[in-house]
């Protein structure tokens, strides 16, 4: 990754920081206004997931490229924590499902906002979400 930055997520204030960095990076990478907002919203949701469920973690974002489909570039966001992990990932990805007081739209919502969304979680070891959005 050419441009990369990392944001520690420890409290709700860091959600705003991660979102703003994501917005700035997306603009720098040449995304249009609507996509920049979608990316910022997705970062907000995965960052909130860390604060709500793992207490602390980090978000690493940077540029990404692929040779598939004639070559594309985009942004990659990795949100990882060493929290309790998600016991049932399929359930957590169901729209409207929440173990807490939330709306249960955060993770499935983030998936809809991005082009690629991968979640790996192990009980007791933590969760890593990798998501990408390609430039159109």
């Amino acid at each position: 990754m050419a441009t990369e930055n990392q944001t520690e997520i420890r409290s709700a204030v860091d959600i705003v920081t991660a979102r703003q960095r994501g917005r700035a990076l997306a603009l720098e990478l040449g995304f249009n206004g609507a996509d920049v907002t979608l990316i910022a919203a997705a970062i907000s949701e995965v960052a909130r997931n860390i604060v709500d469920h793992a207490k602390s973690g980090e978000i690493v974002m940077g540029s990404v490229a692929t040779t598939q489909n004639g070559g594309r570039t985009g942004i990659q966001i990795i949100a990882r924590d060493q929290g309790p992990g998600i016991r049932d990932v399929a359930q957590a990805m169901q729209y409207g499902y929440s173990t807490r007081k939330g709306l249960g739209v955060g993770l499935p919502g983030a998936k809809w906002l991005m082009d690629e969304f991968d979640i790996a979680s192990e009980a007791g070891r933590g969760t890593t979400i990798t998501m990408k959005k390609w430039k159109r």
Partner: peptide
Amino acid sequence: PDVAFAMVQLGL
């Protein structure tokens, strides 16, 4: 408008 679009995408 962009914010509204993102909200719709999120199902909010």
